[in-house]
């Protein structure tokens, strides 16, 4: 799959403070990529550079093959973004603001109603932005980001400053949207575990440096952290009884139409050999390593 975002040797400083130092990574099309790192690691700067809002000091960056600083409009036409600390015109009505954004992106008027429904803002269409709670402001941000069915979504700390309930709600919304739109998504967060369920790709950052990046399976194998296999089969119960006997299997969970196999770090080879064998016997239809334990992965990568 061709990368949607490519950064090579990216540098950026604010005065004497280096925000990004030789940052290189790429994000493949269709991935849900986590941009992970503590506060001040350069995530927001990276996102703003990808959007052409900040100018890089050095290096190269391409989004859909365009330089975002020079061809900003072309990039932003195809990208939707939720900023870390969004500030919307406080006296504007929610519906009117969305209508303007939709017109700016050349999206049909009907899309505004659809997005209001999708993000649960229908009741607030005539409300002023200043009257919205933080959770609803975040929903508004997501609605704005989704205008024009973007091919790439950049979500900068979309759950920051939200209470746990709203956080789960927003993450579920993002998950549902990705499945519906099939867009590439980049989510930055400093709360690593919350992206566990969402990410298929990760870029780990610290103090303006990319420590590592790659698909979750790839990273899990590389660092030997526990991982989860999502397995589909005709007879999930039979398969579960077969798998649980294996030594590499830490646990097996039955889901709706799939089975999750938890595997210890370092036992991937054994697990995949067993799954291949079961597939030959017709017990397994498909299997995929989907997510590693992001928290563990992060602590290993940072400790390295």
């Amino acid at each position: 799959m061709s990368p949607v975002v490519v950064a090579r040797g990216l540098t950026k400083s604010y005065g004497k403070v280096a925000a990004l130092r030789n940052v290189s990574f790429h994000i493949p099309e269709g991935a849900v990529a986590g941009l992970l790192g503590p506060n001040g690691s350069g995530k927001t700067t990276t996102i703003k550079i990808l959007l052409g809002l900040l100018k890089r000091d050095g290096g190269e960056v391409e989004v859909f093959g365009y330089d975002p600083w020079l061809e900003e409009a072309e990039v932003r036409r195809r990208v939707g973004v939720v900023h870390e600390k969004p500030l919307y015109p406080p006296d504007e009505k929610v519906g009117r603001l969305l209508r303007h954004i939709a017109r700016m992106k050349g999206a049909p008027r009907s899309e505004v109603g659809r997005l209001l429904r999708l993000t649960g803002l229908s009741e607030y269409a005539e409300a002023k932005v200043r009257s919205l709670s933080r959770g609803y402001l975040q929903r508004l941000g997501i609605a704005i980001a989704l205008v024009g069915d973007p091919e790439l979504l950049l979500l900068d700390e979309p759950t920051a400053n939200l209470d746990p309930g709203a956080r789960v709600e927003i993450l579920n919304l993002i998950k549902a949207l990705q499945e519906e739109l099939g867009a590439t998504v980049v989510i930055s967060s400093h709360i690593i575990p919350e992206l566990q369920e969402v990410c298929s790709y990760a870029v780990f950052m610290q103090e303006g440096v990319v420590l590592d990046h790659g698909g979750m399976g790839e990273l899990a194998r590389k660092y030997g952290v526990p991982a989860r296999y999502f397995v589909t089969a005709r007879d999930l119960r039979l398969l579960a009884s077969e798998l649980i006997k294996e030594e590499f299997a830490k646990s097996v969970e039955l889901g709706d139409g799939y089975l999750t196999l938890h595997v210890e770090g370092g036992a991937y080879a054994a697990a995949e050999v067993a799954l291949a064998r079961l597939a030959e016997r017709g017990l397994v239809e498909s299997y995929e390593i989907r997510t590693a334990s992001l928290g563990e992965l992060y602590s290993r990568i940072v400790a390295r």
Partner: peptide
């Protein structure tokens, strides 16, 4: 200064525009 410009500058509007 407030940053409300970011909302519109995240759309296909150029900085020059």
């Amino acid at each position: 200064s407030r940053g409300t410009c970011t909302v519109f500058l995240s759309q296909p509007l150029t900085r020059r525009g």
